[in-house]
């Protein structure tokens, strides 16, 4: 299967558009959890640029593939950390009323 020349850049260009889109979402969205979703879209775009540029005649370069797998795992780790931080911030905003706790405990 020979690759039409115009098609070679299709996925990397989609990736570039995704990065722009994710950035736009990151700027206009107010809630941090939505911003986290936007960051994930940016990450997906970057992976698509990285992997898509490794596309050859009939195989895709395994080297960027391995890098993208590494990137996907790291991005889920960061998403989990971000989600935990967002939850904690929300808890701190809402917590003082419902949870009576002994004073000084939090500073310990």
């Amino acid at each position: 299967m020979s690759l039409p020349a115009a098609l070679g850049h299709l996925f990397p260009l989609t990736g570039a558009a995704l990065v722009g889109l994710g950035l736009f979402g990151f700027i206009i969205l107010r809630h941090p959890l939505r911003q986290l979703l936007a960051v994930n879209v940016i990450a997906a775009g970057i992976f698509l640029i990285l992997g898509g540029l490794g596309r050859g005649e009939d195989v895709t370069d395994p080297y960027p593939q391995a890098l993208v797998i590494t990137g996907i795992v790291v991005s889920v780790a960061l998403t989990a950390l971000g989600a935990a931080m967002i939850t904690r911030l929300a808890e701190d905003r809402c917590a003082p009323a419902p949870t009576p706790e002994p004073p000084g405990d939090r500073d310990a």
Partner: peptide
């Protein structure tokens, strides 16, 4: 992106 030619050079 367009300035880089897709390439599987390391394969």
């Amino acid at each position: 992106v367009l300035s880089i030619a897709p390439d599987d050079g390391l394969a």
